[in-house]
Write a protein that binds this DNA or RNA. Sequence first.
DNA 1: CTACGATATATAGAAGGACGAGGTATAAAG
DNA 2: CTTTATACCTCGTCCTTCTATATATCGTAG
Lengths: 115, 115
Amino acid sequence: MAPPKSDLPQGTLDLLILKVVALGPVHGYAIAQRLEQVSRGVVQVPEGSLYPALHRLENRGLLAADWKETETGREAKFYRLTGKGRKQLQTEAASWQRLIDAIALILAMANGGAR
Amino acid sequence: MAPPKSDLPQGTLDLLILKVVALGPVHGYAIAQRLEQVSRGVVQVPEGSLYPALHRLENRGLLAADWKETETGREAKFYRLTGKGRKQLQTEAASWQRLIDAIALILAMANGGAR
DNA sequence: CTACGATATATAGAAGGACGAGGTATAAAG
DNA sequence: CTTTATACCTCGTCCTTCTATATATCGTAG
């Protein structure tokens, strides 16, 4: 049974990438795999979304990268979080929490809600 | 104190609108007010986002509209949910729940998460 | 009376992200 | 040697969001 995949709302991908990278240096391909595994297939990151996002984050100074060998002896671009990226992660995580709390309020709204 | 406003991720606005309209016929301007009030100011809906979204939903057959008088005696376009809209609301609400659960898993990820 | 703020709708234009499709390259497995 | 998995990249399209602008009515403050 293929778990239902859902497209990511614009903006949330950055948060997820920052979070994964915060756990330790990883290369792009592995980031996508982790996200898919941990989310049990709900979050799927096509490469056409992944790499532009990584470059975006790098250009914004939130990630830094260098080429290293993987465990299997291949070259890959390993990303790590900058100080700025760490702050941004905290900010975005907090924003996300505020947002889903707010949306939860709205979705819990019953007919008497705005009396 | 900086007002904690946050931009809505692409796609979530439709869900919120459908939810508000599901509670009973409302006009656009009131939808935005309700969203802002219920979410305590976190969700703010600029008119440039609101009206295109309403037209979009109407064109997709999820909302239907007719002009009526408001309580204050002014003309306004009142929206109501179609059957299709009701189904779509359930679908989108379920998708949203799946998504935030998945993202919660990711954000809760610790260093041992994917071993 | 006039100017303003709130109500109520609408559109145009700019910006930006997500995604599918395509391309490159290497290593291991069959 | 061809396929599969790994690993990177980019172009073009689609879609949504937001800022700004425009219109019109109503109540109220000056």
